[in-house]
Design a protein around this nucleic acid. Sequence first.
DNA 1: ACGGATGTTCGCGC
DNA 2: CGCGCGAACATCCG
Length: 272
Amino acid sequence: MPELPEVEFAARALRRWLEGRRVASAQAPPSRIFRGSEREAFLRRLPGTRLTWVERRGKILLLGFTENVGVLSHLGMTGKWIRVPKGAPPPSHVRASLELDDGEKVVYRDPRLFGRLAVHPADALLDLPEVRALGPDPLVDGIDPEALHARLARSGRPVKVAIMDQGVIAGIGNIQATEALFRAGLHPARPASSLTLAEARRLVDAIRASIEDTLVAQGDGDSIVYVEEDRSQDPFRIYGRAGTPCPRCGTPLEKLELGGRTSVFCPRCQPL
DNA sequence: ACGGATGTTCGCGC
DNA sequence: CGCGCGAACATCCG
């Protein structure tokens, strides 16, 4: 389920769950989330360590443990970190788990196996090529409207495709792109290079607002989340609502496909 | 039963 | 090099 807000949510949860505890043991059946010998590294290196820090860059989670052990976690499409209290039944599709010294478990569930876990030296995590390749993170770095405008000016791609490029802005996926473009009043198929500086400013503000609203909707505790529990109360204004009335003007929302992803938009509020 | 889904990567062709 | 397209991955949900 992960775009930036959900990955941020996972980062905050992992801090709470792992802080101050020792990893007693690690388990992981062979699966695609590990490449090469990453699984063996995970099983060998994690036991005995303690979490020292958690960072997020875009959709990438970075966990620093003692003994300079670092874990990179990408949640793919269906990855999720879950706390399993002592004695509670584990969820299905668990691909990796850390048993803590108090008997609690923190597990990584990923039914579709699109996610990835990798082990690196903790002090090298932020310098990994895939992390360096990311554009600015809206929460960590903030988005500079003029820099975004300049970057978009170089691309003829649809603006929606451009802002989902992790090298342009880190962490924007189909939901946040759809929501932000609606808030900014920009048609998703507008050529990126056609945006004025004023429109880029509106887009930056809309991205921030959309992310903030999604974070708020997720709450702050271990409690759950509109997002998957109750579609009718999810925090999204137009995502997944093609055919229903635009919340601003009542015109039926339409959809089109861009870059292989469904894009919902209001033909009146987001004119081409 | 069928179609679509919050992501990434790779190969192919223009 | 930029860009678009389709496929692949494996499962769940309506």
